[in-house]
């Protein structure tokens, strides 16, 4: 089975879908001739040409608005916003237009639009180029929001996003671009809104996504040597949020920890905690815990950035604290 990087999985998903559907167009800042500032989309422009693959001005609102207008008139656009930190520049278009267009027209339109952006810290990019956007975007019904952690999920969920007749924001984690994994040649589009139990265990459920998932798995490996068995769930999407998979796991382990690469207040973990409080509280043997960036911002200095973004040590401590509860 071929191993490719998370970065290549993005390129392959776009190219494979564009070969199948002439109505797919792709545009954003430096995505065409330069192949993307993260070198994620090389060769797309060369293969599909200047009509379907376009560089845009640095105009985030125009990019998203134009993609929306194209989506409701017969094209299937993929719009890139480069760093996820630039999503707020286009927030009116994403929140007031894209998310609401089908609804406020009384269902006259479908909005087959994919918005891509690269997110996440750990690279020394500083406060305005390191944020995670999934929790910002989950409060807008009408949007789907996916955040894949592996090359296979990146490939299959991006393909699913492109095929979806709803607007989907696909968040790529910058730190994972070089991650390698198996992507079968015949890998099919995935199902958006399904979490996945990536490691089974009986002692405690950990829910995470993207970089935090990999750190949680690192901790799970270490603790397994001590006979502590973590069940690790890759959330994969925050909208729709897969409550059932998490609830099933909590009913088995009776303990829940969430690891989020974002501030504590208003994060997706709060929504999951609320859901479990509502539907699963009698299955809990311990309080629900979250490991977050607390309410800090991401600093440039490497020592501060490492301190602020949850690391394996903090996750391990939270696990041990939770297991000590009775």
């Amino acid at each position: 089975m071929p191993e490719i990087t998370y970065r290549d999985a993005v390129q392959k998903a776009i190219a494979d879908e564009m070969r199948l559907d002439d109505s797919i167009v792709f545009f954003g800042e430096d995505v065409a001739k330069a192949g993307g500032v993260f070198k994620v989309t090389p060769g797309i422009y060369e293969e599909f040409g200047a009509e379907r693959v376009r560089d845009t001005p640095i105009s985030e609102q125009a990019i998203i608005g134009t993609a929306l207008g194209a989506a409701i008139t017969g094209l299937r656009p993929i719009a890139e916003l480069m760093f996820a930190d630039f999503i707020p520049v286009a927030m009116d278009q994403i929140v007031n237009q894209v998310a609401k267009y089908r609804f406020m027209s009384g269902g006259q339109f479908t909005v087959p639009l994919t918005i891509r952006a690269a997110q996440g810290g750990g690279g020394g990019f500083g406060t305005q180029h390191s944020q995670c956007a999934e929790s910002w975007l989950m409060n807008f019904p009408g949007l789907k929001v996916v955040a894949p952690a592996t090359p296979l999920d990146m490939y299959s969920l991006l393909r699913a996003a492109i095929r979806d007749d709803n607007p989907v924001v696909v968040l790529e984690h910058k730190y994972l671009y070089t991650l390698k994994g198996e992507v079968p040649a015949d890998a099919s589009p995935g199902s958006i809104g399904e979490a996945k139990v990536v490691r089974e265990g009986a002692d405690l459920t950990v829910v995470a996504l993207q970089l935090m998932l990999h750190r949680a798995l690192e901790v799970a490996d270490k603790l397994a040597d001590e006979g502590i068995n973590l069940e690790v769930i890759d959330l994969r999407a925050v909208a729709p949020l897969d409550s059932e998979t998490i609830l099933r796991s909590v009913m088995k382990t009776n303990r829940l920890l969430m690891v989020e690469e974002s501030p504590r207040q208003g994060g997706w973990g709060a929504s999951v905690a609320s859901m479990i409080a509502d539907r699963g509280i009698y299955h809990l043997d311990a309080p629900i815990k979250r490991v977050n960036m607390e309410n800090s911002l991401i600093a440039y200095s490497p020592v501060l950035e490492d301190e602020i973004i949850p690391n394996a040590g903090k996750i391990e401590k939270a696990v041990r604290d939770l297991l000590a509860e009775d």
């Binding site: 379907r52 608005g65 929306l68 194209a70 008139t73 237009q97």
Partner: peptide
């Protein structure tokens, strides 16, 4: 907000 949305319709017309 409606300015770029019209541009999208124009893009569809241009491409098709």
């Amino acid at each position: 907000a409606q300015l770029p949305i019209a541009m999208g319709a124009a893009l569809t017309a241009q491409i098709k």
